[in-house]
Design a protein around this nucleic acid. Sequence first.
DNA 1: AGAGGGAATGTTATACTATATCAACCCCTG
DNA 2: CAGGGGTTGATATAGTATAACATTCCCTCT
Lengths: 166, 166
Amino acid sequence: MTQTKSQTTSVGFDPHDHSHCIADALQTAEDICRAQKLQFTPARRRVLEILLERHRAMGAYEILDILAAEGMGSQPPVVYRALDFLTGHGLAHRIERMNAYAACTHPGASHVPAFLICRLCKAVAEVETGLDSGRLGDAARNTGFTIEKVVVEAEGLCPGCAEAAA
Amino acid sequence: MTQTKSQTTSVGFDPHDHSHCIADALQTAEDICRAQKLQFTPARRRVLEILLERHRAMGAYEILDILAAEGMGSQPPVVYRALDFLTGHGLAHRIERMNAYAACTHPGASHVPAFLICRLCKAVAEVETGLDSGRLGDAARNTGFTIEKVVVEAEGLCPGCAEAAA
DNA sequence: AGAGGGAATGTTATACTATATCAACCCCTG
DNA sequence: CAGGGGTTGATATAGTATAACATTCCCTCT
């Protein structure tokens, strides 16, 4: 919000031109929904916008408070349905460790996303892992386990908070 | 419970002599607590036993029901305190994706554990990852993020359920 | 135009997960 | 035997998520 630098890294903790990444992400979401004949309804769109604006993981009820203040519905199913849609189509992710949700920073990519979660400021960065080809895949093959979905979440300190804490 | 084969792999979905791994794990837990001057109280011990007996991830309230039936306390803090102790000292793990808990299958080892979670029978296998040295570590270094803890959880089908479903 | 049907929303109620708080107790130690 | 840390007991409440059913909207087929 206070950053003014123009830079479009869609990942990481760097300052960047936030209005651009919001507009880009919304446009991408619209494209994806059109291509797949999905309904990008006002509630779904607004929830994604809220996640993009805050640029961090948010609890469902935190999002709900904002929706309610805007008159878009005040009951839990409103926000959970929107989040189910967004996560189900790769537009947002659930951060298991925080019971929270964050906009996907590179929708459309097929991937095993990993999240770097700052335990102080709660900022979340989404990065890629090469996990399938690593030891986890080996371990699964060795035991005969069929992996369908993988969650990778790292908690720690982002550059800013690490510096502030030092 | 119905397995009778003797085999002591402490990891994976293979049949094995379960009474052995329970006894071994409890003994190891006692050793660890003695070495670190921790109190392995009846409630803590019983919760670990329950997790070992079931050999799967269990919800806190599921454990609580068992404790209550045995007269060991019927209020949530009873089980959450025991679970905090066990997870805090590496004797059990929280499975974030399930809001559930499972006994550690190789306590004492320092590691980045990963979990293979069967979505049908809820069995959980604990395996090792080489994650620190992989792309996640690279990504963190590149962004200046300091990783303190990593959660890796894979959901899918264990060999038995995959076969049954086929 | 009207009937049928699928998806989305509105609404109420409830289930499930987890923690805060304070009092009581136990044991060790000084 | 007083103090203090750690553990337990007990009550209340906070936080997260879903079930269930009625209603509406929009599209399509006739």
